[in-house]
Design a protein around this nucleic acid. Structure first.
Length: 346
DNA sequence: AAGAAAAACAACCGCATGGAT
DNA sequence: GATCCATGCGGTTGTTTTTCT
């Protein structure tokens, strides 16, 4: 492991910062500002590299940092934002005044993730007990499969090329699902993935920077609502004035879920940025509609809808000669797409 | 009370990006 | 256009603290 390029020229100290070093850095930046970080250590009298100084300042010494544990409201917002933005910790942290990306990341990895995993395992166990369709079951990895073809994994949506399961209609656990499915697909590179219609859920469909390769997954793009429409608190559909995020193939994603019922305050309190709309990050775009929310009863409908999709696919899949060959993947996906589209009237 | 394990926190590393030359 | 450099980001590792046995 080498050091930073900026640290090669001189011997620098590493590891934890002492109070004396902190004091030197704070005194210097308070007086002169940081300017060019690479010159800070020399000017401040520190045996550190500029990168280390910058990190120490940003993550620990900055006066506007909010210390202490995360509030339940902050935690809820992190969950919400992560469901939209994924692991873009810096983007998430921007919506949390006084918090750093490092702090949010650590909080997520050491706290929220574990809770989600335990909840998901519990929910998955419960949910699996309610599967009525004799053609569908859950395999050892926790994925929905068709009994006729255990290699066929049913999925609903994708984030960063990692599809999800019908269980995305559950309240949490997307990362676990992603992680498990990633593991599964790594071990079973030839496994077939059938995309069902992404259900109403706070998941995973917003992919401004790393859109899913629908084609590579053999899937179809979401076709949920009329063009550019958005569900808002009243239950009505509106046409936003902003440009909605697009997938890599140019198709537009239509969010239907901005925050849970009762979380309107969180959404409405998010900072508004006056910038050209096309330059806004996805969250800011979404927060332009602070009253948007997703009626909870739609979750139940979504679950039912997914199972109905499985029913339809199952009834049709029997007419396909070979489900296990990779050549059938596209056909299945198109089939599921058509079925879902027709079931949605789109 | 002591050691082990787990959790929390802090820092580092490599890579990507953008501006300057 | 190629190269260098500073900066920012996300993943990962290391260290400290807390909890458990």
């Amino acid at each position: 492991m080498g050091h930073h390029s900026c640290c090669n020229k001189q011997k620098v100290k590493r590891g934890l910062w002492s109070p004396e070093e902190d004091e030197k850095l704070v005194n210097y930046i308070s007086t002169y500002g940081h300017g060019c970080w690479s010159s800070v250590p020399k000017l401040a009298g520190l045996q550190r590299c500029g990168k280390s100084c910058r990190l120490r300042w940003i993550n620990y010494l900055r006066p506007d940092l909010k210390r202490g544990s995360f509030s339940p409201q902050e935690a809820a917002l992190i969950v919400q934002l992560h469901s939209i933005l994924g692991n873009r910790w810096a983007q998430i942290a921007k919506q949390l005044p006084g918090r750093t990306d490092n702090e949010v990341k650590n909080f997520w990895n050491s706290n929220i993730k574990k809770k989600m995993i335990s909840r998901e395992v519990s929910a998955l166990t419960t949910f699996s007990g309610h599967i009525q369709n004799p053609n569908v079951s859950i395999n050892n990895e926790g994925f929905f499969i068709l009994n006729a073809n255990p290699n066929l994994i049913l999925t609903t949506s994708a984030r960063q090329d990692q599809p999800c399961l019908p269980t995305s209609t559950l309240q949490a656990g997307y990362d676990l699902i992603d992680y498990k499915l990633q593991q599964f697909t790594n071990l079973n590179p030839n496994a077939n993935l059938v995309h069902l219609l992404p259900s109403f859920s706070p998941s995973t469909n917003l992919l401004p920077h790393n859109p899913p390769s629908w084609q590579s997954l053999g899937g179809y793009r979401p076709q949920s609502l009329d063009s550019d429409q958005l569900m808002v608190a009243s239950g009505e559909f509106v046409t936003p004035a902003t440009t909605l995020p697009q997938y890599v193939d140019g198709s537009i994603f239509h969010p239907v879920k901005l925050c849970e019922v009762g979380e309107e305050n969180l959404c409405s309190s998010t900072p508004q940025i006056s910038a050209p709309l096309q330059d806004l990050d996805p969250f800011t775009k979404l927060s332009s509609f602070p009253n948007g929310y997703y009626p909870q009863d739609q979750c139940l409908a979504a679950n039912q809808m997914v199972m109905e999709q499985i029913d339809m696919i199952m009834s049709s899949i029997l007419q396909i000669p070979s489900c296990s060959s990779s050549s059938s993947l596209l056909g299945l996906s198109e089939l599921s797409s058509n079925l879902v589209s027709s079931s949605w009237g789109v």
